[in-house]
Design a binder for these strands. Structure first.
Lengths: 169, 169
DNA sequence: TTGGAAAGTCAACATAGCTGACATAAAATC
DNA sequence: GATTTTATGTCAGCTATGTTGACTTTCCAA
C-alpha cells in the first residue's frame, strides 16, 4: 500500500488525498455518525426499542410494501437478527406483515398508524440535526457531502440507494 | 416540529432542505458508514479484536501519550467498556500504558511497534476506500463533505476534532 | 491531612450482531 | 406429479460491546 505521498498527477494538486486529510475524513465520519445516531437513540430509550428497530422502521416507511428479503439486503444483517426485531414490531402493532398476492411466500411490510407515529418522532429528531448541519454548510457543501458518501458505498447498495425516492433530485 | 416545506427564505432556494433531501442524506450516512467500517472489520476478524479495539488504536496513534480520560471522551463510552478493550491491547503488547510523570494517577497511552503495525494495516484499508471516494468526488466535494460532517458533530467533540493533527489544513 | 479526581476492577445485565440447524409453504422446474 | 428451490420463520447458543453500580487504590491539591 502506498505511503500516501500526494505528488501531482494530471496537473491537479492532489493535496486533498494526503494521509492526513484521509485520516481527518475518517475521524469526521466517526464523530459525525455518532452524533447522527444520538438523537434517535435517546428517543428509543423511552420505548423498549433499539437502533435496529429504528433502521427497520425507517426503510419500511421509505418503501411501503417492501419484502423481508429486500429489507434484509438493505440492512445487511442476517434474517435471524432482523426477525427478532421485526417480530417485536409486528407484535407491538407498529408493523403489518401482509402475505404477497402474486407470490404468497413473500411478506410485504407496512407501517401501521402507530408505527408511522414513531417513525415521525424518530426522523423528526434526526432530520432536525441534519437540517441544521445542511443549513450551516450550505447547498454546495451538501452536494459534495452526498457525492462523497455515494462514492464510498458498496456498488450493490449504491444502486438500492439511488433507486429510492428522491422527489427533488 | 415543522412539516419540512422548504419555502424560500432570504431569497435563496432552500430545496436542499426538503424532508426528502434530508432523508436521502440520512440513508447516505447509513450506507456509507457501513461500507466505511467493513474493510477494517474484515481484517479484525483475522485477529481476535473488534471495532472497539480499532477505534482505541486509531486515536492512540493519532495522539500518542493521550490519557485514558481523553480517550474516553473521544470514544464516548464508559471507562469499564474501554478498560476491557485496553486491557487486552496492553496484555497483547499492542499498547503501552505509561504512568504520568507529573501526575502519577494518569496513564499515557502509546502504540508499541506491534500496535503500530496493526494500526497501519487497518488504516491502510480504510484510507484506500476513503481515497477512492475522494478521488471520484473531487476536491470541492471533499471540502463540502467535511463541512457537513463537522456541522453535524456535537460541539464538544468538534473542538477535539479540530484540534487534532492536520498538516495540510 | 483530608477531599476528590483518575484509574482500575468485579459483577451483572442488555442489545444486537453471528452461525447452525431445522420447519413450512409455495413457487418453479424437471 | 414429483422434486428442487426460494422466502420466511424459529430455536439454541455464542460473541462483542455497550450499560450501571459498587468498590479500591493512588495521589494531587486545597
Amino acid at each position: 500500500m502506498a505511503a500516501g505521498s500526494p505528488g501531482t498527477q494530471g496537473g491537479e494538486s492532489l493535496l486533498f488525498l494526503t494521509d492526513e486529510q484521509l485520516r481527518k475524513g475518517i475521524e469526521a465520519m466517526f464523530f459525525a455518525y455518532r452524533a447522527f445516531t444520538a438523537d434517535p437513540d435517546r428517543i428509543l430509550e423511552n420505548y423498549e426499542y433499539g437502533r435496529a428497530h429504528h433502521r427497520a422502521i425507517h426503510f419500511i416507511n421509505r418503501q411501503p410494501g417492501l419484502t423481508v428479503n429486500t429489507l434484509l439486503t438493505m440492512l445487511g444483517v442476517t434474517k435471524q437478527s432482523l426477525n427478532r426485531v421485526l417480530r417485536t414490531l409486528v407484535e407491538d402493532g407498529l408493523v403489518e406483515s401482509r402475505v404477497g398476492r402474486r407470490d404468497k411466500r413473500e411478506r410485504h411490510l407496512h407501517l401501521t398508524e402507530k408505527g408511522a407515529m414513531l417513525e415521525r418522532e424518530l426522523s423528526d429528531a434526526q432530520r432536525a440535526r441534519m437540517r441544521a448541519a445542511y443549513r450551516a454548510a450550505g447547498p454546495a457543501a451538501v452536494a459534495g457531502f452526498r457525492q462523497v458518501l455515494e462514492a464510498m458505498m458498496d456498488p450493490d447498495i449504491r444502486r438500492h440507494y439511488q433507486s429510492m425516492k428522491d422527489h427533488t433530485a
